[in-house]
Nucleic acid binder design. Structure first.
Lengths: 214, 214
DNA sequence: GTCTATAATTAGATAGAC
DNA sequence: GTCTATCTAATTATAGAC
């Protein structure tokens, strides 16, 4: 019974203050690529250059890590919408301009952070506590804001003829699917959805299509 | 050493000729809800009222089951498009009518079989052999057909101003996202995406939005 | 707080009785 | 072809040295 095996590799200690943030970023990529069940905590830790048990140390569980990572990402999304000026509801052309700006920022954010809607897509295919939580906490505010103006924009002939109850998901699908499916876009079209010109063309197209009366 | 334990449950034999098809249908639901990695062969077998090893008997592996199930589903999709009359390419109004009919059938099929684009979404978030295979085998033909007419419809002022390289994914996202995310739609809007009236309103909205010059 | 070791569970696949 | 039992590997989580 030797107290220390002779050829055990030396214990490397990699102390870093930002390990929590690195784990959050890594979790977003892995959850976005594989979904909650498909992603493994080992892969998340490896990508963050950490050890698997550190996830249970810095977060309570795999699920707690998921909630923290999604909170973090929606915080970034909210920040991307900062500074939008919401005009008087009766000034419909100004409302349309503001919505166009929201759509453009939505496109750019989704291009920069495809993980958000990748995770939403993975989750939205099946009812779950995680889905209920993310919708109540993060999605409903944006849905409510769009509901408040879409009907009036349609009546004024500015917005495309899509039902109020459907516009949120139709618009979200049109905006985010090319970035969520970026690997498929590359295979199918040979174009690069992270190219800035690609992103702006996509934003122009979506705005012109969904707000044709602008 | 008793040759037969006394209280072992009796061996129930459930022989069914349609077990292969039941496994395919079950696999589509489970792969659609959880993705390839998240779905378990035990859950797939349970839903088909079969035993887990029967998957390895009737199919070579979990992956072979995935390929067979996706092949089966795209076969149904192709059948849903049967009978579409493709007019002369120069008769643009007739081409637009045909495309509108394709979109309507696409909407109805996705409503009836949300598993197809659920599986596509799960797969498209990460490059893989499965993604490469399904795009080359099943997606590219439809992409090619749309490419052939979209530019001319745009030039004629019939189609919405979306780039040729983007229209496939923008349209697919707009059509399928509400059905792929049906659990989210129910939570967020309180409406039911499988309701026939809902489906037709969605089809009308997408056709009018993407083919405004019709 | 980081690390090794491992417990407890579950995964896909296989062997062989029936 | 169906079924029970089981193998091997991978999973999340925990215990305890450092």
């Amino acid at each position: 019974m030797v107290p220390q095996a002779p050829n055990r590799p030396p214990r490397l200690r990699r102390s870093r203050a930002d390990i929590r943030e690195r784990l959050l970023d890594s979790a977003l990529v892995e959850f976005g690529a594989k979904g909650f069940d498909g992603a493994s905590t080992r892969a998340i830790a490896r990508r963050a250059d950490a050890h698997q048990p550190q996830i249970n140390y810095h977060f309570a569980s795999k699920e707690a890590l998921w909630f923290a990572a999604v909170d973090h990402l929606f915080e970034l999304f909210g920040r991307a919408m900062d500074g939008i000026v919401y005009p008087e509801p009766d000034d419909l052309p100004a409302v349309a301009d503001a919505l166009a700006e929201v759509i453009r920022r939505f496109v750019r954010f989704t291009a920069a952070h495809p993980e958000l809607h990748r995770i939403m897509m993975h989750e939205a295919t099946e009812a779950s506590e995680r889905l209920t939580w993310v919708i109540a906490r993060h999605v409903r505010p944006f849905y409510g804001a769009l509901m408040g103006v879409w009907g009036r924009l349609r009546a004024a002939g500015i917005a495309a003829p899509i039902d109020d109850a459907m516009i949120h998901h139709v618009l979200t699908g049109a905006v985010s699917f090319p970035f969520v499916s970026a690997p498929a876009v590359r295979l199918l079209t040979g174009t690069e959805p992270t190219d800035p010109a690609w992103i702006e063309r996509h934003a122009d197209g979506v705005v012109a299509t969904f707000l044709p009366g602008l």
